[in-house]
Nucleic acid binder design. Sequence first.
DNA 1: GATACTTTGTTGCAAAAGCAACAAATATTA
DNA 2: TAATATTTGTTGCTTTTGCAACAAAGTATC
Lengths: 149, 149
Amino acid sequence: MQQQSRASQVSLPKEPVQRAWVALQRFGPALLDRVETELKAAGFPALEWYDVLWAIEREGPLRQRDLAGHMLIARYSISRLVDRMEEDGVVTRRECPEDGRGQMVHATPAGLNLRKAMWSVYGKAMREALAPLSEKEKLQLTAILTKLA
Amino acid sequence: MQQQSRASQVSLPKEPVQRAWVALQRFGPALLDRVETELKAAGFPALEWYDVLWAIEREGPLRQRDLAGHMLIARYSISRLVDRMEEDGVVTRRECPEDGRGQMVHATPAGLNLRKAMWSVYGKAMREALAPLSEKEKLQLTAILTKLA
DNA sequence: GATACTTTGTTGCAAAAGCAACAAATATTA
DNA sequence: TAATATTTGTTGCTTTTGCAACAAAGTATC
C-alpha cells in the first residue's frame, strides 16, 4: 500500500495475547511494506520474485509444488507468478523427468543477475528495517516466531 | 491463500538479521492466514471488517482518514472497503460537520452484532494461534515488534 | 482575499488474488 | 490390473488491489 503520511495511532490492548497479536498483525506487515517499497522505488519487481530466484539458486531447479511450499503461497499463485517471470525471461519451465505432471523451474542467467541486483537493495533495506533491534533481540524474535510456525 | 497440504520446508539462514527477517516474513503471515481461514470457514468476512467495526466501536464514528491510519492501509482501499461494508449494511457514511471533504463512518446495529459474532471465532483463533508462547514470550514479542514500528 | 499547496476521498483502468472446476499424472487399494 | 483417490498444475470468472489522475475542501503564503 505504501504512502502513509499520517502517523499510525496504534494503541495496544492490555492483555498479553491481544497485545502480541496486534503487534504481529501490524508491525510485521508494515516492515515488509517498507522494504517492498524500497525495492519498487529502485525499479525492481516484488519480493516474491526474489524468493523464487533465491530458492532456485540455493537448491537448484525446483518444482512449482516445492516453490509453493517454500513460499507458503497457493498453487495457482505460483503458476501465474512463474508465468510472469517466464515471460520476463528470468526463469524457464522444463519437463520433470520423474513426474509427468511436474514442471521444473530453472533460473536463466538474466534471473541470476536480477537476483543479485535486487539483493544490493533488499539486503540493505532488510538490515535497516531490523536495525532497531540488538543482535540478542533478533535471535529472540526468531526463536519466538519459530515457535509459532 | 489457505490450503497448504505440504509442510513448509523453511530453513533459516545463519546470520541473525536474516534469520529474524525470514521468520518475520514467513511465520507472521502464516499465523494471520490461519486465523483468517477460520473466520472464513465460519462464514464471516475478513479481518479488515472486524478491524473497522472494532475501531468504530471503541472510538465512535471515524473518518476514513483515521480508519486508514489505524489499519495502515491505503486511502483508496478504505474507500472501497467502506463501500462494500456499507452495501452490506454494517456501516453508513455521513457528512463530516467540520470538514466538507470528510466522511464519518458509523456502525449500524447489524455492524455491532457482526463484530460481536466475529469475536467469538476470532478471539478463540487468536488465542490458539499464540498458545505456543508463554505469557512472558508474548510480552517479549510485543516489545520487540514495537521497537520495529 | 487571491494564489498556490496539501489533504481527503473517489474512480478508471490494469494487474493480481481467490474460488471452483478441470485434465493429466501418479498412488493406493481391492 | 482395474477402479478409486490424490496430487499437480492450469484456467475462466469474479473480486480485490494498485496506480495514477482527479475534484473538492481545506490550509498557508503573499
